[in-house]
Design a protein around this nucleic acid. Sequence first.
DNA 1: ACAATGTTCAACAATTTCATTGAATAGCTG
DNA 2: CAGCTATTCAATGAAATTGTTGAACATTGT
Lengths: 226, 226
Amino acid sequence: MDNQSRQELKALLYEQFARMGKAFANARRLEIIDLLSQTPHTVEELASKTSLSVASVSQHLQVLRNARVVDVTREGTYAWYRLSDDRVFGIWCMMRDLAQDRISEIDHLLRQYFNERETLETIDAAELLRRIAEGSIIIIDARPEDEYRAGHIPSALSVPIEKLESTLAVLPKNCEIVAYCRASYCLLSDEVALLLREQGYRVHVLLEGFPEWRAAGLPIEKESLN
Amino acid sequence: MDNQSRQELKALLYEQFARMGKAFANARRLEIIDLLSQTPHTVEELASKTSLSVASVSQHLQVLRNARVVDVTREGTYAWYRLSDDRVFGIWCMMRDLAQDRISEIDHLLRQYFNERETLETIDAAELLRRIAEGSIIIIDARPEDEYRAGHIPSALSVPIEKLESTLAVLPKNCEIVAYCRASYCLLSDEVALLLREQGYRVHVLLEGFPEWRAAGLPIEKESLN
DNA sequence: ACAATGTTCAACAATTTCATTGAATAGCTG
DNA sequence: CAGCTATTCAATGAAATTGTTGAACATTGT
């Protein structure tokens, strides 16, 4: 192998690796990856949840597919996209944990837009499991209902913010509550938690999101399909 | 928190995360990350090893620094760049392992340029440790000498390809050899191994590169600084 | 103070990326 | 088959990325 073709190979090789990197190099694509780590979505669903045009989402999905980061399965006129490998979520997790630790702007943003957040009591997965065993706690899934249906923490109630008001009637005033959502920075659960606290409830927020819970192999519950 | 500022925050947040992703989204930058996972380098060293202009390398390093993926320490007129966190190497590892599994072009490239490669006998870290304990093996570090000096597998000899010929005189014909380099796809060790095999030596190639060895917490040896 | 050296910055042209629009495709339904 | 819908494709323009060149900066050694 001569020196020139060695250089050539090296360049081509790193270019292939970079294909994968590019998947994670755009804010909108990360948002899509985040949604896909909850559950598979159709193009339209992704477009609506990200407030992007369908064409734009489709284009991003082509990039993700090119990087072999997502898979499609067609079902009638629908195209269901999902993460191609559990490791994709793993990489995304490591990347955002590192970013959260090292890029101070992230913490800064979270604080600036939502400064009451830090006053919320957090709880980790191990502790939540203990409380579930004791049976002394009500769990609230703050994500959109379709994500809840695709899988949630056992015995959790589906309470997206829009439905919070109607749920208040059902919740006994003296119970303890844990809320969770997509991820630690996703804030859906924080909003729900703050509103509940205003109503006088004792509320905790789960540190991790549902995908981490599932990835850790902890028990989950799915909506039965009838 | 109203709906608009929620959207705004979400966008800004993912933008921050994407800063980190961008670090891994370019072939040249990945090459730089790979070199920095061997040992810290100056701008000039990186430029020479990557065949890029100094200015271009400097620019890439700014991107990496912006993503908080590398740190600089200045020493005289030199700027020593290093990975800012072990997790950076972890992410890069996961990314390229996933890429190697899922992007078929990578395997294809390796085969096309170097089809004898697959005929080389490989050996993993655990097995190598066993052989070291037996004392029945000679280890060859095929990386450039500066990377060897910064840290290598204990008792390994520094034999970059250029020095192979002069080293042949020293190697007893009947000994068994294990060669390693920067990573599994780095091929420096494969080239050395093929040449050694032609000379009649019994050669193995270590599956992992030196950074993986170090990251696994296995023993390493450094050149003493006199 | 001066020149030498390693690094960064600024300006540029070439290329790529991104979101939008509107058209094309492909699978359902009546 | 026609009409409908979900998705993809193609074309556009705006913006960002990349590598080059040459100048600017900062530290070292004379």
